[in-house]
Design a protein around this nucleic acid. Structure first.
Lengths: 202, 202
DNA sequence: CCTTACATACCGAACGCTTGTTACGTACCC
DNA sequence: GGGTACGTAACAAGCGTTCGGTATGTAAGG
């Protein structure tokens, strides 16, 4: 293999992927440079060649995970309003192995984020952006008569995020109970209850 | 100080409380025996005198936290049905410093629990018990006409838990935005939306 | 009532191990 | 030959855990 420069950023992404793998099945408590290195069959010296410190390595992996999450292939966003919100939340739920791994990593990162002010602020910003990307759809839904006039789109966005992430956590710990069908049924019932008029039963 | 035996379990609880303190502001990543020891002004040898291993120490602290959580003073459970559910969920939300610390510790523990099968199963059981303690109230609510006939109490219990814990996480990371008033308003609107007929606006 | 024996409660220092990080050496390509 | 891309080996620091020692109490014996 040539030491051809230019694919340096590609190597850094390879390393980040190895970080994700370790993170997804050992958590932050089990994340060591040696575990990452052996996971990709290299030495720890190689890791330090691409990242100055472990903290930088983790930070890059998390930022890249966030970018990849934003750019990942998603299901169609068919319409505006509640249907669009439904598609967004479906893309968050751990319905595929990839989404499960992603969610596991984020949930695990909360331990660090709660203890570190900088990471905690970043997490808070992520939530703010997520809510901000949701509330326009709720505004459109209200304008289209899908929501009561009295509904507050921003608060409802926070509620939708709360429901979704709370469901994510339960599903991660008990995937047998929270099958894909159960998660979708819960989401649909939740959206129906939020909506102006519901057919609550499924 | 006398080596009077008999208050041995009391000492173990003292240690567990020190564990909680370290956990609440450094997380599991910052939980070391030395940190616990200096937090209570003793030596690490003393810790090992009461617990054979760190794992046992943590396990006892978490079990005790669960017990204390179950037995903590709670607000009145006024009636049956939705009002009772409201009181239960209010007791979970991080509205007091004590509840905030408790929630921080549980959220932090998810990193460990997701990586350790035994702890993961315990967490899943906790969720199952929580849902089981909620669904009777939802059954009563349905019988009393507070919920649509088509509502599924068990699924609705999972939805209520999801909403509540998702709100907990957001509130932990952004307490300035999720004040007590905001959390209560969100909870009330959520309960109104799942109820049979709502006055959605507060 | 004093003494001896013994278990408990704890401290302080040390052990072995793992951690993140650094230094040095080697192979490779331009 | 010089810079890039590693591997290997070592480093100091921090970790959980162990060990010996020192009080302090209870219990027994004469």
């Amino acid at each position: 293999m040539p030491p051809a420069p230019g694919d340096r950023e590609a190597r850094r992404e390879d390393v980040s992927q190895a970080v994700w793998e370790v993170l997804a099945d050992r958590g932050f408590g089990g994340l060591t440079l040696r575990a990452v290195a052996t996971s990709m069959g290299v030495s720890t010296g190689m890791l330090m060649h691409y990242f100055p410190t472990k903290r930088a390595l983790v930070a890059h992996a998390l930022h890249l995970l966030e970018t990849r999450t934003a750019q990942r292939p998603r299901r169609e966003r068919p319409t505006e309003g509640i249907a669009a919100l439904r598609a967004m939340l479906l893309d968050i739920l751990p319905l595929t192995p990839g989404d499960t791994a992603r969610n596991r990593i984020w949930v695990s990162s909360w331990d660090l984020a709660l203890a570190d002010d900088g990471l905690g602020a970043e997490q808070a910003d992520r939530y703010t952006r997520l809510r901000a990307s949701i509330s326009p759809h709720l505004e459109a839904a209200r304008a289209a008569g899908e929501l009561p006039e009295s509904a507050d789109p921003e608060q409802l966005a926070a509620t939708a995020v709360a429901f979704t992430h709370g469901l994510v956590v339960q599903a991660l710990f008990d995937p047998a109970r929270f099958t894909e069908a159960v998660q979708i049924a819960m989401l649909d019932d939740f959206l129906a209850s939020i909506s102006d008029r519901s057919g609550q039963g499924r």
